[in-house]
């Protein structure tokens, strides 16, 4: 295969919703022959960050993509920037054709305290964004 390959950026969170988003990204990549860049980050500003995947969770996503025969790359590191900024910067850097994110309903208070990564990505992305809805119930706790 020659020429520039399409790249899909997957904003990954270790939850049922995140795994659903990963499946969607895999299917999209398999259809178009694109490769997937999995992004998972934390600001490391709290003791427990449930949106930060551990090695096993990253390995599961990698296994999922590999089973689908999809080329992939993992960006898994602590970063002082906000998660949305990291995803958008990675998308710009790899010239992403598509960003896949999971979206779920948030309370106004939750939005005020934590902000909405998905909203920020949807509004600021320079490429199409595929929003994967939560199929309830979305378990917030990791397995």
């Amino acid at each position: 295969m020659t020429g520039p390959r399409r790249t899909i950026v997957l904003a990954f969170v270790p939850s049922a919703l995140g795994r659903e988003a990963a499946r969607v990204a895999r299917d999209q990549a398999a259809l178009t022959g694109a490769r997937v860049v999995v992004v998972n980050t934390t600001r490391a500003d709290r003791l427990v960050d449930l949106r930060w995947a551990d090695e096993q969770q990253v390995a599961e996503v990698v296994a999922l993509l590999r089973r689908g025969g999809v080329a992939h790359e993992v960006r898994h590191a602590a970063d002082d920037r906000l998660a949305a900024e990291v995803v958008l910067d990675v998308a710009a850097e790899v010239g992403a054709a598509l960003i896949v994110i999971g979206v779920r309903r948030r309370s106004p208070v939750g939005k005020l305290v934590l902000g909405s990564t998905a909203q920020r990505i949807l509004l600021d992305a320079r490429c199409p964004v595929l929003a994967v809805p939560a199929t309830p119930p979305d378990d917030a706790l990791p397995r």
């Binding site: 600001r43 500003d45 002082d80 906000l82 005020l112 305290v113 902000g115």
Partner: peptide, 11 residues
């Protein structure tokens, strides 16, 4: 280290 700054003020 809170970011963005306006969210810290709003909170």
């Amino acid at each position: 280290g809170a970011r963005p700054w306006w969210r810290a003020l709003a909170l």
